[in-house]
Amino acid sequence: MGTLGRKDLLDLEGLTAEEIGMILDEAEAFREVGLRPVKKVPALRGRTVINLFFEPSTRTATSFHLAAQRLSADVLDIKVGDSSVKKGETLLDTVATFEAMDLGVLILRTAHSGSAAFVARHSRASIVNAGDGMHEHPTQGLLDLFTLRRRFGRVEGLEVAIVGDVLHSRVARSDVWGLLKLGARVRLCGPATLCPQALAAVWEGAFPGRVRVVHELEAALEGADAVQVLRIQLERLQRFLFPSTREYSRHYCLTSARLRGAKPGCLVMHPGPMNRGLEISGGVADGPQSAIRGQVANGVAVRMAVLHLLAGSEEAA
């Protein structure tokens, strides 16, 4: 019987299709736990899980916190404003301090690509990357895959559009790696400044012909089984990467009219938090094709699966 023989979850680029499949299978078991009257199992009793977030996050931090609690772990949330890092301590010293308190799993969110891998190399604790700069956000990728698999029964062969600021999106990067490894095809869509043609080259070597870049939303949606709408970060506006929110939404806002150009029943996803009226219309976000609420619920199950599989690998390593 296989287990995840890894200490850390840093990205989906480094996982095999079998490992991703194992996490998604495991998430099915934890999804059932979420439907019970008592939504808690004793699997991680006595383990310590720390959420260390250097960027503001409500959704991801809450989801990890709930996942750890439902596994009966002791869980702490540390926001950078409260931490000694503000007083000049290095990241590794902070982690070493946690280790001295018998830390089992560290969930880390930072603004710097590669920081999770860096900490993982220097720590005995299991590290879960909860978003590192523009690199990856693997549990978001996994919950998107889980949402697709639950809806379609498989990921293989699906046509999935990812729309928005793909260039700066760690969610998009994790989604693309996961989708390709499980056999889907991907269309990346956005204005050339946020979704340059050269982006597909990253995946061309390993998955030739399975990723293409299009700049018109209508073309990206045509024949799509699912569309992931990315959040537009308004701070990019100040860096002149797109001219105005009104112009962006005129070309790229997912509206009911545009959604009709996709396959019937095309699944709509958004990692949240949404800018209604900017990248997605309220009608689509709340409409019958929206999986957005389901994504949030699935996030807890997927994160429980990841924590359980990693914590179990501790002694195995």
Partner: peptide
């Protein structure tokens, strides 16, 4: 499925859990 309730989770690698029904 009782995987998550076993008393030996600390002494051997985690086994994948399956959904109960």
């Amino acid at each position: 499925d009782v995987t998550l309730y076993r008393d030996d989770v600390h002494t051997r690698p985690a086994r994948p859990a399956a959904p109960s029904s």
